[in-house]
C-alpha cells in the first residue's frame, strides 16, 4: 500500500518543531508500524537526509520504550498493543497517517518523536518498591497469598511504564501509572508495612513533577496497551485518603 505520513520533526528540546510530509510506497500489510518507519528512514538516508528519531527497543510489546501518537491515539488504531506490535494491516492504501510524540509537559520532547519519560523513574524512586535488602528474606512459601490477590497484583504489575496513559489524558495525569504500582504492592502482604508512606510520597512526587489530576474520563484505560484497569485509580485514591486521615 502507498501512504502519506505527516511526521513531527523537532531538532532538539529547545527548537520549535513542525510537521513534515513524507510518502512511502509498496508497504506490505504484514509489515509492522516501526518497520514501515525503518523503510522511510532508509529512504531518507539514501537522500542524505536525517532519519526520523523515535524510541524503540524490544519490538515485542514489553519494554515500554516505543511510544508514538498515531492519528490521535497513543500506540495507534488497535487495542491492547504497543506501537511496535501494530501492523500495517490496520491501515489501507492511500491513507494519511499523522505521527506525533507523546504530548505532556512532564514528558518534554528530546528530538522528533522521542520524549523524556524519566519523570516516571522519579516517581518510582519515591517508594514504588518494597524496602528489602538483598539476603534479608524468609522462606518463600512462608508468605501465603491467595490466588485471587496474586492475580490482581499481577494484573496491575503488568504495566510497562510506556506513558500512553499520560499521553491519552487531557490533564496529562499519571494516576493510572501510579495506581498500578500502588495496587501491585497493596495487594501483597509484603507491601503492607510501608503502604501509607509509599502512597503519600509517590502522589506528592507526581504532583511536583507536573502531572495533572484525574477527572474520570478514563482515556488512560482505553489506551493502555496492557489493559490496566481504572479500578487501580480508585484503589490509589482510597489508599491516599486513608493515609491522609490516619
Amino acid at each position: 500500500m502507498d501512504l502519506t505520513l505527516k511526521i513531527w520533526r523537532q531538532k532538539d528540546a529547545k527548537s520549535k518543531g513542525k510537521f513534515v510530509t513524507y510518502h512511502v510506497k509498496d508497504i506490505s500489510p504484514t509489515c509492522s508500524f516501526l518497520e514501515m518507519l525503518d523503510i522511510l528512514n532508509e529512504q531518507l538516508i539514501q537522500k542524505n537526509e536525517e532519519p526520523v528519531t523515535f524510541d524503540h527497543d524490544c519490538r515485542e510489546g514489553i519494554c515500554g520504550m516505543c511510544s508514538l501518537y498515531i492519528n490521535g491515539r497513543p500506540h495507534g488504531p488497535d487495542d491492547a498493543i504497543t506501537t511496535c506490535q501494530l501492523h500495517m494491516r490496520k491501515f489501507k492504501d492511500g491513507d494519511t497517517i499523522v505521527i506525533e510524540p507523546w504530548r505532556a509537559r512532564p514528558f518534554p520532547v528530546i528530538k522528533d518523536l522521542m520524549v523524556d519519560r524519566s519523570a516516571f523513574d522519579k516517581i518510582i524512586q519515591e517508594g514504588g518498591y518494597i524496602s528489602v535488602n538483598t539476603g534479608a528474606f524468609t522462606e518463600a512459601n512462608s508468605i501465603l497469598i491467595s490466588k485471587e490477590d496474586a492475580d490482581l497484583s499481577m494484573d496491575a504489575a503488568a504495566c510497562i511504564g510506556c506513558g500512553a496513559c499520560v499521553a491519552a489524558c487531557k490533564n496529562a495525569s499519571a494516576m493510572l501509572f501510579v495506581g498500578a504500582k500502588i495496587s501491585h504492592l497493596a495487594m501483597l502482604p509484603q507491601g503492607a508495612p510501608e503502604a501509607k508512606r509509599r502512597v503519600l510520597k509517590m502522589v506528592a512526587k507526581m504532583d511536583e513533577l507536573g502531572f495533572g489530576n484525574c477527572t474520570n474520563t478514563y482515556a488512560c484505560e482505553a489506551e493502555c496497551p496492557k489493559l490496566i484497569k481504572r479500578s487501580n485509580i480508585a484503589r490509589l485514591n482510597r489508599q491516599f485518603l486513608t493515609a491522609k486521615v490516619s
Binding site: G135, I145, A157
Partner: peptide
C-alpha cells in the same frame, strides 16, 4: 532457592495455587 525467597520478599507476583503457595 535464595533467589526465589528474595524475589517474593520484593513483591514479585509469582503464580500461586489456590492454597496460597507458589
Amino acid at each position: 532457592n535464595a533467589i526465589i525467597d528474595q524475589c517474593v520478599a520484593q513483591g514479585v507476583p509469582f503464580a500461586r495455587e489456590y492454597n496460597g503457595t507458589l
